[in-house]
């Protein structure tokens, strides 16, 4: 990313951090939701945008982490934050390891279908099984308590505190993903996306790289799922179904999968569109579908590609030559 883009991201984060002081409760909670989904979409982008693995079962890890929190919470009392968070992310990562070990061997459309199959398997496990509330799901009556060594750091029951915690998590993950992109590991994933055969010929164990990416993405989706379960206080099978997986994939594609901030932009646009269209029609999915179709037809690089289009062509050409030089 250029210095200008970093500045824009920093300004955006500062604005979001200041939000609880000037915006009302509804707006802040809406922003928290968007941030959680920005995190979720960014985790998927690690697979889609970077390793070229299009997953249609990513919501499985998101939903399972939420279920872990719900099952670990005492009935009407707050669960401890750190241990349940570690548990939720750990379970999501382990699940991603088990599923990933099987699916990363497949490629292209078959990867998409295989992840879809495992996602639906999880959906039916929670939907048809009776250990987690079946089709109704579970409720979380109290948000986890954020104490560290007996000191209460923040109170998640307050929407402002919750917003800051989500924002901090989101910012940390974005920085982590930015570092990952620039690291040798990220470069290998880029190489696998462009030409896996060549990477293997160069001596990289591509399957292992893809598996690590899959587990990382699953763990980060778990983090998002945990936060989402905190915010809404409810988990249900729909949170891990294919519709959710499709929605988050759409956020990634809408925003533009090449860039770091594209998925976050996609999440904001997705929920913004829903809010906007719901404002004046019960049939809000109709205009939303039309916008999605229009983006598919006319904006091949997503919304982030718009930025590239309006920039002067010289800057684009310079960037392209740099990229070619690096390749």
């Amino acid at each position: 990313m250029t210095r200008l883009q970093w500045a824009a991201v920093a300004a955006g984060l500062a604005l979001l951090a200041a939000m609880p002081w000037f915006a009302d409760k509804f707006a802040v909670q809406f922003a928290s939701k968007v941030l959680i989904f920005a995190l979720f979409a960014s985790s998927l982008n690690l697979l889609v945008g970077q390793a070229g693995l299009v997953s249609l079962g990513h919501a499985g890890f998101f939903g399972v982490a939420g279920y872990v929190l719900a099952l670990a919470s005492p009935e009407y009392d707050a669960a401890p934050l750190w241990s349940t968070l570690a548990m939720a992310v750990g379970v999501a990562a382990l699940l991603a390891l088990a599923i990933g070990a099987l699916v990363v061997r497949t490629r292209g459309v078959y990867f998409l279908m295989a992840t879809l199959a495992f996602g639906q398997m999880l959906f039916h496990l929670f939907h048809d099984g009776d250990f987690a509330g079946g089709s109704d799901g579970l409720q979380i009556f109290a948000r986890p308590a954020g104490t560290l060594f007996g000191v209460a750091l923040f109170d998640l029951e307050q929407y402002r505190h919750f917003h800051w915690v989500v924002l901090a998590a989101c910012a940390l993950v974005l920085v982590f993903l930015a570092r990952l992109r620039a690291s040798p590991f990220g470069r290998v994933l880029d190489g696998i996306r462009v030409n896996e055969h060549r990477m293997r010929a160069l001596g990289f164990a591509t399957v292992r790289y893809k598996l690590v990416a899959f587990v990382l993405a699953g763990a980060l989706a778990g983090l998002a799922g945990y936060l989402s379960a905190c915010q809404f206080g409810v988990v249900n099978p729909e949170s891990l179904g294919w519709h959710q997986s499709g929605a988050v994939l759409l956020m990634v594609i809408l925003g533009g999968m090449g860039s770091l901030t594209g998925p976050a932009l996609g999440a904001a646009v997705w929920w913004g569109m829903e809010l906007f269209f719901q404002g004046f029609t019960r049939h809000w999915q109709l205009p939303m579908g039309a916008v999605i179709v229009a983006v598919a037809l006319f904006l091949p690089d997503g919304l982030a590609g718009l930025w590239r289009r309006v920039r002067p062509p010289r800057a684009v050409a310079a960037e392209a030559s740099v990229r070619e030089g690096a390749a």
Binding site: V109, L249, M288, A290, I292, A296
Partner: peptide, 14 residues
Amino acid sequence: HLHQVLLTFGLILI
């Protein structure tokens, strides 16, 4: 394929 996914998901909504 991703654009086809995007397009046809939009078609579902429509």
